[in-house]
């Protein structure tokens, strides 16, 4: 089991390393949000330009983690098409370790992408002391695992690389916008506050913001519990979907099999 997880993680990180240029390209999106959107909206914000950038910094980090983790999950869809996983599927590896390995590998990739954004913190007016950095890294790791589990839960059901990104955008973007990453939830309309309670991204972003700025919207223990629960449920779900693939050699992607 552990060896299977390890093998999946090594495989994905080796491939990630081949694509390391993506780390730099992946900076574009968060920096754009931070310094263009942040400067533009911040100028009109009650928080003021400098404060607004500081405020959305954790949210932009969350954005980076969310998109990297979702993209990492797409590899499972590619794997089905290219066939490498056929070789993996006939190896004596429990399907569960493939699911766990994928979640961990995706989380590590997202985490690294997030860390690359950190050096820009001072430019956004964010002070990174030892305590804040430690707290932030821990919450980033938890957020990465959550987002990776979300990405895999979707990717596990798709066998088409063209359909998956469209569907994931239809789900991932709303989750991001409702999370309070770019605005304070406290002053948001009531229905948005309510919706945020059902949005794992909101809890993750709130934890990161709390670790960095010391102010929480949710009770941090509630956030922790929510994220751990999301990871557990989605990991269990992915294992279930993958196990279903024991009989059809497709690693479970039968539900949305639109392209075959």
């Amino acid at each position: 089991m552990i060896r299977g997880i390890y093998a999946v993680v090594v495989l994905d990180l080796k491939r990630f390393w081949l694509d390391r240029a993506r780390l730099v390209a992946g900076l574009a999106q968060p920096l754009l949000y931070l310094f263009v959107l942040g400067a533009g909206i911040g100028a009109n914000s009650q928080l003021g330009g400098g404060d607004y950038k500081r405020y959305i910094f954790p949210g932009v980090l969350g954005l980076s983690l969310l998109f990297t983790a979702t993209f990492a999950a797409i590899t499972i869809v590619f794997d089905r098409q290219i066939g490498f996983f056929k070789a993996v599927l006939i190896a004596p590896v429990p399907r569960a370790s493939i699911a766990f390995g994928k979640i961990i590998a995706g989380a590590l990739q997202a985490f690294v992408q997030g860390v690359v954004v950190l050096p820009f913190a001072p430019l956004a007016g964010v002070h990174l002391g030892v305590g804040e950095t430690f707290g932030l890294l821990c919450t980033m790791l938890l957020a990465s695992l959550t987002f990776s589990a979300i990405g895999l839960a979707f990717a596990a059901r798709f066998s088409s690389t063209t359909v998956f990104p469209i569907v994931s955008n239809a789900v991932i973007l709303p989750m991001f916008f409702l999370s309070g990453a770019l605005y304070p939830l406290v002053t948001a309309p009531h229905w948005m506050q309510l919706a945020a309670h059902f949005d794992p991204v909101a809890y993750a972003v709130d934890l990161m913001r709390g670790a960095l700025l010391g102010k929480f919207f949710f009770n941090p223990y509630l956030s922790l519990a929510a994220l751990v629960a999301v990871i557990a449920v989605l990991a269990w779900d992915s294992v279930r979907v993958f196990n279903r693939g024991e009989d059809d050699s497709s690693l479970g992607a039968t539900k949305f099999n639109w392209r075959r």
Partner: peptide, 12 residues
């Protein structure tokens, strides 16, 4: 087993 279609990771 060797399959008809490739089952190696082409980029590695």
């Amino acid at each position: 087993i060797v399959f008809q279609e490739p089952a190696i990771e082409q980029r590695l």
